[in-house]
Nucleic acid binder design. Structure first.
Length: 275
DNA sequence: CTCGGAGCCTGTCTGC
DNA sequence: TGCAGACAGGCTCCGA
């Protein structure tokens, strides 16, 4: 489900609400999401203080002081901090897979309908760093320059849409934002990476940054599952120009938006505006 | 290296 | 109403 803007929004909420709190107990309700041996999580977390929460790529990193709990939310994962304001609908209790109880009675719930999410616990910093070493450039970091982007683009000959989804090249972009970025850059999702010229690469870079930043400012995109850590929906779905708009008029030229299956994922684009 | 397909899971929606 | 099939924000593994 969540792409970079959604994970970043969740991270911010968790950091504000949970930073510095002490873990009292944890409860594991579903086995298949835990990559690390369950017993380790049950043994090591209680009593520890949550230093802060970070994001790298689409993953959340709970820094517990020489201990890192890492979560990939995949399609339907969500972290919700329980409080009085939450409605029963937002809590979706039947999908709660993992609970962290803090000493001040705050509860952190990991909810995941499809249980495709993954939770890891790293005790060794080198091991954690090795895990993250496979991930590519952070698009909102200073490393994402036109030359560095051009370099990785020209090493491959795959379609630009597929490239944007490849987390070993550039991180955080998923199926929604890939379509949105390519539309705003007027580039066809099927165009091979090595055929992009300098002007297209620069436009693609600036639109990538623009779309992701704007989506973060709007707390992400909610279709059905995604919620912020306070249970609220995102807003960016109001600003989507192509995603989920099959047969609706292109906001630039008025011709119908197309949907095609590309590498087993839906791709939305305007045939007329994107070349 | 790239590709296509299956698989992991549970649910919603559409069409017959 | 029942049922089958397509599809869903992600990613990994396998064989070709």
């Amino acid at each position: 489900m969540p792409e970079l803007p959604e994970v970043e929004t969740i991270k911010k909420g968790l950091s504000i609400n949970l930073k510095g709190k002490q873990i009292a107990s944890v409860k594991l309700l579903r086995d298949n999401i835990f990559v690390t041996e369950k017993q380790k999580i049950l043994d090591l977390l209680p009593g520890k203080k949550l230093i802060d929460v970070h994001r790298r790529a689409k993953l959340l990193i709970f820094d517990i002081g020489k201990l890192w709990l890492v979560t990939h939310l995949r399609m339907s994962g969500a972290y919700i901090t329980a409080n009085d304001k939450l409605t029963a609908e937002n809590l979706k209790k039947q999908f709660t897979r993992f609970i962290v109880n803090f000493t001040d009675k705050t509860q952190l719930l990991y909810q995941d309908q499809r249980t495709l999410g993954k939770i890891y616990l790293f005790e060794d910093e080198n091991e954690k760093n090795r895990f993250f070493s496979k991930y590519g450039i952070e698009p909102l970091s200073n490393d994402f320059t036109t030359p560095s982007f051009k370099k990785i683009l020209y090493k491959r000959k795959i379609s630009i849409k597929q490239f944007l989804l490849d987390q070993t090249q550039i991180v955080g972009i998923g199926n929604i934002y890939a379509s949105e970025i390519l539309f705003r850059a007027n580039i066809s999702p099927f165009k091979p990476t090595n055929l992009l010229n300098d002007a297209e690469i620069e436009l693609l870079r600036t639109q990538t940054i623009e779309v992701l930043k704007s989506a973060i400012e709007n707390q992400g995109t909610t279709f059905s599952d995604y919620r912020q850590s306070n249970g609220e929906k995102g807003i960016f779905q109001k600003f989507l120009k192509v995603y989920n708009r099959e047969d609706m008029p292109c906001l630039t030229c008025g011709l119908p938006i197309k949907r095609m299956m590309q590498n087993q994922r839906s791709t939305y684009f305007c045939e007329h505006c994107q070349n």
